[in-house]
Amino acid sequence: MNASPFATSARTATNRRVESVGKTVLAGVTALLILPLTAILGLLVIRGAPALSMEFLLEAPTAGMTAGGVFPAIVGTLWLVGVSLAVSAPVGIMAGIYLNEYAKANWLTRMVNLAIVNLAGVPSIVHALFGVGVFVLFLGLGTSILSASLTLAIMTLPVIIASTKEALAAVPMAFREACWTLGATRWQTIRHVVLPNSISGILTGVILQVSRAAGETAPIMFTGAAFYLPFLPQSVQDQCMALSMHLFTVSTQVPNVPEAIPYATALVLLSVVLLVNMFAIAFRTYLRRNRKW
C-alpha cells in the first residue's frame, strides 16, 4: 500500500475530532455530576432563606412544628454523634490496631476482615433492625439516645476499623522492622513510631464518620429519635430530636408546614455535614503535605 500523506492526515484529523468530541462528552458527564451538588445547595439556600435566621437555629419548633426553629434537633444530633463516636472511635481504632499490628495472618483473621468489609456494606435499615432488637428490646435500653447512639456506633465501627487499618498500613514496614531490631517491643514501636505517623490519617477517618452519623436517619428512627419533644434531653436515657429525623418529619409527617421550613432544615443539616467533611479534607491535604517521609 502506498498510503498518500493525505490519507494519513485525514485519519489523524478524524482521530483528533473523535478525541475532542469524546473529551467534551466526558466533561459534560462530569459536569452533570457537579450540577446536582451546586443545584441542590443553591435551591436549599434560595428556598430556605426566608425561614433561616438566628432564631431558627436557637428556638424550638412551635405551632405543631409549622413554625419556630430546629434548636432541639441540633442538640439531639450533637448528643447522638457525640455518644456514638465516643463508643465507636476508641473501639474501632483499637480494633484496627489489633488487626493491622497484632493479628496473625490466619483463617480467623481473614474471616474477621471479610466480616468487617461486609458489615460496612450492610444497609443502614438492617442496622436499625439490629438496634431495635438488641438495644431497645433485648438489653432493655428502650428508645433512648443510648440505643440510637449504639446503633450508629455499630454502623460506623467497620468504617473506622477499615480507615484505621489503611492509615496504619501506610506506615512503611521498614520502620517497624528497624524499631524491632533496636530492641523496641511491639507496643513501643506502635506507640512511638506507628501511631504518631498515622494518627492524623486515623482521625480523618473518624471525622468523616462524624458527618455520616449526623446525616443518618434510618438507624435512629426506631431506636431513639423522636418526631417532637417538648424538652431537651438530660441524659442518654432520654429520647431526642435529630436534624435528619426532623427533616423527614417536617417534609412527610406534618401537614401544612410552610415550604421554607423543610428547606431551611435541609440546609442546616447539609451545611453541618459538608462543613465537617471539608474540614476532614483540608486536614488530610495538610497532612499529606507534611508527611515525614
Partner: peptide, 14 residues
C-alpha cells in the same frame, strides 16, 4: 531506614 523523627531522636531511640 531513617525513622520519621529527628536525628537526635533516631540515635536515642533504642
Amino acid at each position: 531506614v531513617g525513622l520519621p523523627m529527628t536525628v537526635y531522636e533516631n540515635v536515642t531511640f533504642a
